[in-house]
Amino acid sequence: MTCTAKKCGIHFQPPSIILIYEDQNQEKTRKRIMPIRNFSKFSDCSRAAEQLKNNPRHKAYLESVSLRQLQKLYSLLKGHLKGQSLAQSLEQVQREEAIDPEEDMNKLDDKELAKRKSIMDELFEKNRKKKDDPDFVYNVEVVFPQDEQVESCGWDAESDEGF
């Protein structure tokens, strides 16, 4: 079966993940409701997302849905179960999504580092020019003039003498 995911969202009551997808064989748009069981406000969202993605019944349908997105949906549900408003949960998810430019990632453990990397990978994949893209160019050279007129990055200033 070949299907292309169009939209993926969550339903709080009864808790379920909803997928709108296109069945390429029949050129039809379909909706799949995947009920969420055994999930509480204490559950681990990453694990729940992984389990759903690897569930033999849903696996084929969720291939083009990223693990990150499923995690986000579970986080929203978790927020709801904790009694947060949707706005609060969304804000929290967004906060977790943000990369702290001051954070020293050398000090993170494997799991935390992998989490940051997967957040940054989303942008990487979005901006990525792949080898098979029709407009792919192997050697892209761009000259960025670095004369005295350019503005300082502001990262040197306070401890320039440290370098």
Partner: peptide, 10 residues
């Protein structure tokens, strides 16, 4: 940029 390839080969 490793993503769009700018100046990587150079």
């Amino acid at each position: 940029s490793a993503a769009d390839g700018t100046n990587v080969v150079k």
